[in-house]
Nucleic acid binder design. Structure first.
Lengths: 143, 143
DNA sequence: GTATCAACATACTGTTATAATGGGTTAAAG
DNA sequence: CTTTAACCCATTATAACAGTATGTTGATAC
C-alpha cells in the first residue's frame, strides 16, 4: 500500500474545502461530519496543510479553515508526497535515506526508478480542481 | 512504500536464477550468499515462487532450485502482485476487500483507479529477462 | 542402509508504522 | 468573561514487516 489514510484524508479535506470555497471559514467539525472522519484525527492532518501554507486557520468563534491557494494551484502529487513523507515505491529510493551500496551493479534499480518516475508523473498531473470533477479523469489518463 | 522486501527479494532471486539458468540446480545457500540475504528469510519467499510454479525445487544432495519458466516469460508485475498480495496503492482498491460504500460519489476514486492502472501498466511491461540488462530500461520507459 | 545434504514446514519474536484517542492551552468573537 | 474553535503534546492499540529458530521429509552418495 503506497498511500495511507493521511494522504487520502488530506485530499478529501482539500476537496471539501474547495467545494465550500468563498463561504468564509470552514469548521473542522463540519468537515469531519461530512467526510465521516474523526475530528481529532483530522486535526493532525490539517496541521500539516497549515504548516505548508496551503490552508489558513483562524481561531475562536466564527473561526475555522480556508484554502490559501486556489484549487487549480494545489498539486496532488505534492500534497501526497509531504503527507506520506515521500512516495517512493521502494526503500532504496527514499529521499534522505542512505544510498544503497549495491546501486552501481543493481539489476533492479532502473526498474524501480522507472516506477517511481511513472508514479510521480501521474500524481503530478492532477490538481485539486481536477479531483472536483467526479467523473474521474480531467487529463490525459483514461480510466 | 508500495513494495516490501518480499517483492524486491523475489525479483533478485529470479534474476539470480536466470543468470545461472541451465547450470543445474541452484542451492538457496548460494543465492543467499550472493544476494547477501538471510537464507532462512529467502526460504519463505522461494516457497511462494514454488507454489506458483515459477520455480521448481528438488530436495536432497545435489538438489536446489531452478526456473520452471523462461525468464522472458516471467512477468514482473505478476510476481510483485502475488508476493505483495496485490499492488493497489490504496485500501479501497484492494481485491478481496469490502467495496467502499462511498464509491458512487467518491471524488478521488477515479484518481486512485488511474494510479492503480498506471502502476499495473508499468510493472506488467517488464519481464525478468528485461531486468537482466543492467542498463535499466529495455522497453518504452525512459529513466 | 545410513550418513549427508538441501528443500520443506511450522511457530515464534522484535521492531516499526499506522491510526487513532485524550486532555489541556491559546486566541478570537460576542 | 464566556463561548468557540484552532492549536499543541502525549499516549496507545493494532497490525504488518522482517527475521529467527527448530524440526521434518526426501533425494543422493557411500
Amino acid at each position: 500500500m503506497l498511500i495511507s489514510t493521511r494522504g487520502r484524508y488530506a485530499l478529501r479535506i482539500l476537496i471539501d474545502m474547495a467545494e465550500h470555497n468563498g463561504q468564509g471559514y470552514i469548521k473542522l467539525k463540519d468537515i469531519a461530519a461530512r467526510q465521516e472522519i474523526s475530528e481529532k484525527y483530522l486535526e493532525s492532518i490539517v496541521k500539516e496543510l497549515v504548516k505548508r501554507r496551503i490552508v489558513y486557520g483562524l481561531r475562536g468563534k466564527g473561526g475555522g479553515y480556508r484554502l490559501s491557494v486556489e484549487p487549480d494551484q494545489i498539486n496532488v502529487g505534492e500534497v501526497l508526497r509531504f503527507m506520506e513523507g515521500g512516495l517512493a515505491p521502494v526503500a532504496c529510493l527514499e529521499e534522505g535515506g542512505a544510498p544503497c551500496p549495491k546501486a552501481p551493479y543493481c539489476r533492479t534499480l532502473g526498474f524501480w526508478r522507472g516506477l517511481d518516475e511513472t508514479i510521480r508523473r501521474y500524481t503530478d498531473s492532477f490538481t485539486v480542481a481536477d479531483l472536483m470533477q467526479t467523473e474521474s479523469v480531467g487529463n490525459d489518463y483514461i480510466i
